[in-house]
Design a protein around this nucleic acid. Structure first.
Lengths: 146, 146
DNA sequence: TCATCTATGAGAATGAGTCACAATTTATGT
DNA sequence: ACATAAATTGTGACTCATTCTCATAGATGA
């Protein structure tokens, strides 16, 4: 899933298989996600979409985000701050996030050793992993104190 | 900070240094946190406290939790689910959490290698770490599918 | 004890997210 | 293209966690 076209195809297929309707609203929302920063929250996306398509409601945006997350087109993140964040899911390996507490910038990183250790830890506790998240909060290059 | 007495002392000192009042409400709330499960949320704590001290208000509990977190007596966690979780902060090494998505059980674990790797990753990106959190969501021993 | 100024209680307000339902739109068979 | 049935949408009400407001109560230092 690297581009809008592929994502749209995925959406179409999922909808067809589940007797759901392919609507212009769902298409527009998907398209606007691709026009939007890589990490965003529902409200900002809604405002953005609303500015171009004033008939699309907040509920529809929330519903579409839930759907796209379920399908696997986007991923809902829990980065703190009391607001759900979303990112496009690009079929890349699992990654985690560095978050600047000053400017909110999000940096992604991948670390295979950490991934493996998590698996080991879960097993040691008899736990079957469904999902995991690692957030490192700090001050980025531009905002760290000297 | 291993016991109520020490925590209370910390609270007293902090309040004195900041020209704030040592109130019975703050003391009761602190005490009840020590009588409560190791991971809890504000509302549950409030209900519990309210059942014993019916004059203590929700706002006071929330305000106290914020204060205790700032002082470092407790730690506010972001385990997902739309509700802030808290835990006593015991001057133990940093630890992370395994969370059962079925029963909500929280298991703590410590892994020095992961801690070290996080430090390295942050440095590689020029980031100064303030805090970090790792959550592994899954099904615990009792609830995993066979 | 008094004066001062912080903390509290009560409930209103906020903000993210969800829900109910009437009206609309889509998919399908003809 | 048309009718039909079923899914979807927009609106606004609603929920839930948390925060705020403000009048009153209570802690602290003189």
């Amino acid at each position: 899933m690297l581009d809008f076209k592929t994502a749209l195809e995925t959406l179409r297929n999922y909808l067809k298989e589940h007797e759901m309707r392919f609507t212009t609203e769902r298409m527009i929302i998907l398209e606007e996600i691709f026009n939007f920063p890589p990490h965003f929250d529902a409200e900002k996306l809604f405002i953005h979409i609303r500015s171009k398509y004033n008939h699309i409601s907040r509920a529809t945006v929330y519903r579409a985000l839930e759907l796209f997350d379920k399908i696997g087109i986007i991923k809902k993140l829990n980065l703190g701050g009391g607001v759900a964040q979303y990112e496009l899911k690009m079929d890349l390996p699992h990654h985690d996030h560095l978050i600047c507490v000053v400017c909110g910038k999000v940096i992604e990183f991948v670390d295979d050793t950490i991934e493996r250790l998590q698996q080991e830890i879960a097993e040691k506790h008899g736990m079957e992993i469904i999902n995991h998240q690692l957030q490192i909060y700090g001050r980025c290059k531009e905002h760290r104190k000297q």
